[in-house]
Nucleic acid binder design. Structure first.
Lengths: 145, 145
DNA sequence: GTAATTGCAAATTATTTGCATTCCT
DNA sequence: AGGAATGCAAATAATTTGCAATTAC
């Protein structure tokens, strides 16, 4: 399956690593997921899809793929969740603690904010994926009752 | 020991909860800690200090104290770390991934940033404690070699 | 006295590691 | 072939839960 816009397979092979079915199923699942899956969710999903793989393999590969820059790990609620890193721009998420809805913010939008921080503290933020909590417009509305 | 500027004991008693020695030792330790301690660190520290308490009690109370707004939990590197919440303003941290140094940013400083986000997305950020990663001035310098 | 809390032990959940075997390239 | 990667099983580590015993108020 090579429906990915980016061919990570060759990138790996070029570095002497192998493209195993386990790695492919993980990449496919992370790619197809609507929300960021955890290692456990990926294991279950992979098996549901008929793949044969062990939890240890999932953990080893998520770490491997993250180190190679193909995936990105985000801590959320104590567990690690994964998403495609790929060759695209960083971005951030706003999670509404009212309805759980998630809004994405382009990296550039946030850059301006980080600029301001850098100017004031000299500290350059490199996080390319923040998860901010707050209230979305509609829940903010409800909160007034 | 009531060296805390804020008397949380009465606040608890007023709500029908008890002030146990275990709870006090936890509050004292979090208060005295230089860096945010984890549940395990608190357990060890409490015992080193001669206190008698179980891991389950530590977890139960950290959760309890956090729910009552006395402590605040921050996820960092997969584990929960705690700090005093108290009646003070929220703030944020910048952690340098070069030297590990930590810089604190007052809540007001960041408010401006959140304002900008709200204006653009309608989303109001309520996180009162972000942990941003980046490079401090001195490490940014070294990175150029 | 009595309900809130604790301790202890056992159960969960997430993740890691050693090692022999398998399988990409 | 030959090293990379997997599976399996066992080891950690962090956290949770049931329940009887304890204790703060």
């Amino acid at each position: 399956m090579s429906h990915h816009t980016w061919n990570y397979q060759d990138a790996l092979r070029a570095q002497g690593y192998r493209v195993t079915p386990q790695r492919e199923v993980l990449m496919d699942l992370v790619c197809a997921a609507r929300h960021r899956p955890t290692a456990q969710e990926l294991l279950a999903a992979a098996r549901a899809r008929g793949a044969t793989l062990d939890a240890a393999t999932v953990y080893r590969n998520l770490k491997f793929l993250t180190e190679r820059g193909l995936l990105r790990a985000v801590e959320q609620g104590g567990v690690a969740r994964y998403e495609l890193a790929g060759p695209r721009a960083g971005h951030h998420h706003l999670i509404c603690r009212g309805c759980g809805r998630e809004v994405e913010v382009a990296g550039e939008e946030a850059e301006a904010l980080f600029e301001a921080l850098a100017a004031r503290t000299g500290f350059r933020v490199t996080s390319d994926h923040l998860v901010l909590e707050g209230l979305c417009p509609s829940c903010a509305e409800d909160a007034r009752s």
